[in-house]
Design a protein around this nucleic acid. Structure first.
Length: 506
RNA sequence: GCGGCGUUGGUAAACCGGUUAAUACGCCACCCUUUCACGGUGGAAUAACGGGUUCGAUUCCCGUACGCCGUACCA
């Protein structure tokens, strides 16, 4: 195993949405193609936002699509603990170290004082003033206060945070694996809180300390983190670890149809899932649909996500996980955000629905049928699935496309039959019913069709006039595979009985 | 406002100085199908704007515009 170590670091505050899943995928692909390790670390330093079950949920999603981490809180590993909340001790130590080296300072401002500052310094030209270069001197901190004042405050157990002291005018640069050189002027970045009043680190301190101590070599995360990258770079430098700093890659955002960062509200607004799997928020009881339950195959999901922001430069669109591991190239990842297209996603899933054996597919389809009150027999289900798979895009499509193989349609499209209905048609179907009811079961589709044609001719009715009514009687509507294929599967007897109920209804 | 990152058809995108600017999804038409799909063929539809650099810019550079992200004791 190489020493390449990448990590996915979600916070356990809710469901895993597809942007997160794609980050996992890219992490995983990079780790695997370099023979490295994929680490899952939970960023749970904010107790107030912690959601029960969220960590297990993330594992469940990763298991669903086969991207299991090599190291995590649940499975262990040499660089644990894998939950930030359990690594508490070292964070304070490093924060204090930064204070003594002059790169950080104590800040005693209450939240009221902070909002007052933001209010006071707010102008139309500067709607959100920062705690930094121009304001820090006016606030209550160990930079503006004398040493004695600071000591007194500390001795009195005044709550404080530790903030990084951004240099006045320095240029911080780093090479992003996707974007190349990125530069920031430190005087324009604010003094981020590193250690909160409750003694817990913020993300900024925690990522750096954890990435260092867990020997992370490559850090891939969403583009929304780019603005805080200079803080992290400086932290690596001030802590004396710059030589071990991971290589960064900031992934382009996944956008909703309106062009904004994909969020929960897009799901409800546009009617497609945004989470990998169903997620019910235990606090609010809010239910969010997942791609898994919507009927996406995990392999299709991975393929969709891989291509949302990356391609190998050829016209190939269908990639297995193995192929992705082999062909993925982080430097070919696009720079701009990508709008998620649900139609295209369905197309991908359709492609994957055509692969593999009918038996395997049938097993995936079965739960959806059972959910709809149908208990299919396996062998029959497999034939049905084989017959209808090409007209299905999502797993639940098999219910609408396949139910009538197992039970008579609840209601039939009478209007479509009645449109061209004639008395002699009724007579014909009555005869057909009689014949099929008592007739032998035929296993040959051609034979079935031939006999049907013969009967039509002897009654001097054109076959074409009878096909649609027949279909609707058997299926309930104008859809489905060939009528005689359906006939063969449901059997003459069942067909006869469906004709009977249809005739009565007419 | 400030900072960062972006900008090729409706969407995803190829090309990495010379092309009739691929391809896929979606859309439209036709074919196949006595249903609906699938499939097949064809079609409409794209380089934000302005300057440079160059024999030549979609491609390189600089502006402008627009979009997104960030600007929390959240990650």
């Amino acid at each position: 195993m190489s020493d390449v170590r990448v990590r996915f670091a979600p916070s356990p505050t809710g469901g895993l949405h597809i942007g997160g899943l794609r980050t996992v995928l890219y992490n995983y692909l990079f780790a695997k193609q370099h023979g490295g390790t994929f680490v899952l670390r939970i960023e749970d330093t904010d107790q107030t936002r912690y959601v029960e079950g969220a960590e297990e949920y993330i594992h469940k999603c990763l298991a669903w699509c086969g991207l299991q981490p090599d190291e995590s809180a649940l499975q262990g590993g040499p660089y644990g603990p894998y939950r930030q909340s359990e690594r508490k001790a070292s964070y304070r130590e490093y924060a204090e170290k930064l204070v003594s080296s002059g790169h950080a300072y104590y800040a005693f401002d209450t939240s009221e004082e902070l909002s007052k500052m933001r209010e006071d310094f707010k102008t139309p030209d500067n709607p959100s003033p920062q705690y930094g270069l121009i304001t820090r001197g006016k606030m209550k901190n160990s930079l503006s206060l004398s040493e004695e004042e600071t000591k007194a405050l500390l001795d009195a157990n005044t709550p404080y945070v530790i903030r990084i002291k951004m240099p006045d005018a320095e240029r911080v640069s780093f090479t992003d694996m996707i974007r190349g050189e990125v530069h920031f002027d430190t005087g324009l970045v604010d003094d981020k809180v590193l250690l909160k009043a409750d003694g817990m680190p913020t993300y900024h301190l925690a990522v750096v300390v954890d990435d260092y101590s867990m020997k992370i070599t490559h850090a891939f995360r969403g583009e929304e983190w780019l603005p805080s990258a200079p803080v992290h770079i400086l932290l690596w430098r001030y802590l004396g670890w710059e030589a071990q700093m991971p290589q960064w890659a900031h992934l382009p955002l996944i956008l909703g149809p309106d062009g904004a960062k994909l969020s929960k509200r897009h799901g409800s607004k546009y009617g497609f899932p945004i989470f990998a799997m169903n997620w019910t928020d235990p606090k609010t009881g809010e239910i969010n649909e997942g791609f898994a339950e919507r009927g996406f195959l995990p392999a299709a999901m991975l393929n969709i996500l891989a291509l949302l922001g990356w391609n190998d430069g050829t016209e190939q669109e269908i990639f297995s996980l193995e192929e992705l591991v082999q062909k993925f190239d982080i430097s070919r990842v696009n720079h701009s955000g990508a709008v998620f297209d649900f139609d295209k996603a369905k197309w991908f899933n359709h492609q994957y629905l055509q692969m593999g054996s009918a038996e395997e597919l049938a097993a995936l389809v079965k739960p959806y049928l059972i959910e709809n009150g149908i208990k299919p027999e396996d062998a029959k289900l497999a034939t049905v699935v084989g017959l209808i798979r090409e007209r299905c895009h999502l797993l639940p499509d098999f219910v609408t496309q396949g139910s009538f193989f197992f039970k008579a349609p609840d209601l039939i499209d009478k209007e479509s039959i009645l449109k061209k209905w004639k008395p002699e048609h009724a007579a014909f179907f009555e005869k057909l019913r009689e014949e099929w009811k008592s007739g032998q079961e035929s296993s040959d589709v051609k034979d079935l069709e031939q006999k049907f044609e013969e009967l039509a001719t002897t009654n001097s009715i054109k076959k074409g006039e009878l096909m649609l009514p027949l279909r609707i009687m058997l299926v309930g509507g104008k859809f489905g595979p060939g009528v005689f294929d359906i006939m063969q599967i449901i059997g003459k007897n069942e067909a006869a009985s469906r004709i009977e109920t249809a005739l009565k209804a007419l």
